[in-house]
Amino acid sequence: MNFSIKNHRLDTGTSNVNFVGSPNIGGELKARFLIIHYTASGPDADIARYFSQKAANVSAHLVVRRDGSVTQCVPFNVVAWHAGKSQWTGKGGTRYSGLNSSAIGIEIENWGPLDKRAGGWVSWTGVAVDGSKVIEARHKFGVPDCGWEVFTSAQIETVIALAQAICSAYAVEDIMGHDDIAPGRKSDPGPAWDMETFKARVRGGGLFQPNRQRAIG
C-alpha cells in the first residue's frame, strides 16, 4: 500500500487511515528522526485504544497491527510520548536529548522478548507463542539473549511504506530503534527487526524479509 501525508495525517489516496486520538501529547513537533518500537503485546490487545486513555501516560504516532492495518493516534506535527529518557547524536554532531520533541514514533504489534519453558515459548504475560513464529537471538547490545517474536510480512511491508511517506514529507535525517536511543533501558525493536535492511528498503533498495535466522520449529 502507498501512503501520503496531508495536513499531518496519514492518507491512503482515498481517505485518511483510522484515527484514534491520544490525549498524551506535547507541543509542536519538528521531526528529525523516526523511531521504531514494538508494543510488547499480543493480538488481543488494542494498543491504539490504550493510548487513547489519559491514564496510559504514553502514546505514539502510529500503531501497526500484525495484519498490517494502521491506526494513527497523534498528528505528525504534534509531540507523542514514545521515546522517554533518550539521547542521540545526529548528523553533524548535534546532540539530542529526550527525543519525543524531535521524533515520530511507530509502534509495531509484537510480543518482543520471550521466555523458553518446557512447553515452548511464552510471552512476559505467560501467553504461549507459536514456535514457528520465534527466533532465538542475542540483542545487539548483549542482552537479552532469548526468543523473539518474528514480525509479519504484512507489518514489514506496511512499515516500509509508512517510513517512505514520512521521510518524503518531513526532514527525517535518520531512523533508529528505541533501543538505539535508550540502550540498556529499552530493547525494541530487537533482533527480529533487521534495521539496516529496513532502512535500505526505505531508501529504495534491498529486500527485507522476516528475520528467521535460527528459527524455532
Rank of each mutant, 00 (worst) to 15 (best):
P43S: 14
D44C: 09
A45M: 15
D46N: 15
I47E: 00
R49Y: 05
R49A: 12
Y50M: 14
S52T: 10
K54C: 05
A55P: 00
A55Y: 09
A56D: 02
N57H: 12
N57A: 15
V58M: 09
H61E: 00
V63P: 08
V64E: 00
R65I: 05
R65G: 07
D67I: 07
G68I: 04
S69R: 05
S69P: 10
S69L: 07
V70I: 05
T71G: 06
Q72F: 08
V74W: 10
V78K: 09
H82P: 03
Q87I: 07
W88T: 01
T89Y: 01
T89K: 10
G92P: 13
R95L: 14
Y96N: 13
Y96R: 11
Y96S: 13
G98M: 10
L99R: 04
N100S: 15
N100H: 14
G105M: 05
P113Q: 02
L114Y: 00
R117E: 14
R117P: 00
A118L: 14
G119Q: 09
W121E: 04
W121M: 07
V122I: 15
S123M: 07
W124L: 08
T125F: 05
G126F: 04
V127A: 11
V129H: 02
D130S: 15
G131I: 05
S132G: 13
K133D: 04
K133G: 03
V134Y: 03
I135K: 04
E136Q: 09
A137S: 15
H139A: 09
H139R: 06
H139T: 07
H139L: 07
F141Q: 08
V143F: 06
V143P: 01
D145R: 13
G147Q: 10
W148S: 04
E149M: 13
E149H: 11
E149C: 14
E149N: 14
